[in-house]
């Protein structure tokens, strides 16, 4: 199971979420996400992105959908990255609620690490929010150290043991 309960718990906790995409000339792009959830009974995650702040990221997702999403815990740099293909949809009211809760929780988590809310407010906006639903194909550890880059699982089209 690619997204085991432990991993699912991690990526929906107050972690920083970064999404990598690329355009049709294979130029990479960076964007931040403001909220995530694991879609029950699938190997999919959903992340919320401000199309206002990260225009190129959303354009890339609309064109080719290839994405890498990194989840980092501010307190200890514990980090996982999932990769796969994503589809974009408009954000619903429940997505906006999720996003608001995420922004409040991660602002507090960052504040605990000494980052003032005035600073994190620059990064955390859900203006013109869209949702990217990513079918996870690989999961890897990105926490700094010897295991960084270790692939934890690959989805071969069936549920891994």
């Amino acid at each position: 199971m690619l997204l085991n309960p432990e991993l699912a718990g991690f990526i929906t906790s107050p972690v920083m979420i970064i999404i990598g995409t690329r355009d049709d000339r294979n130029k990479p792009e960076i964007g931040r996400c403001v909220g995530s959830r694991v879609v029950p009974d699938t190997a999919s995650v959903e992340v919320i992105i401000s199309a206002w702040q990260w225009r190129r990221t959303v354009d890339n997702l609309l064109v080719n959908g290839q994405a890498a999403i990194t989840f980092v815990r501010p307190s200890d740099y514990a980090c996982y990255q999932v990769k796969g293909r994503a589809r974009i949809r408009m954000a619903t009211a429940s997505d906006m609620d999720l996003s608001q809760a995420y922004i409040a929780a991660v602002t507090a988590a960052l504040h605990e690490q000494g980052v003032l809310p005035a600073m994190s407010a620059v990064w955390l906006t859900n203006r013109e929010a869209v949702v990217a639903q990513l079918s996870v194909e690989t999961v890897s550890i990105k926490t700094p150290g010897q295991r960084a880059g270790t692939v934890l699982g690959v989805d071969h089209g069936f549920a891994a043991p």
């Binding site: 999404i19 990598g20 294979n26 130029k27 990479p28 999403i69 990194t70 990255q81 990769k83 990105k142």
Partner: peptide, 13 residues
């Protein structure tokens, strides 16, 4: 952010 030859993106801190 970088991208592999096959178009798979990657993020590193």
């Amino acid at each position: 952010a970088t991208a592999a030859a096959d178009g798979t993106p990657n993020i590193s801190y």
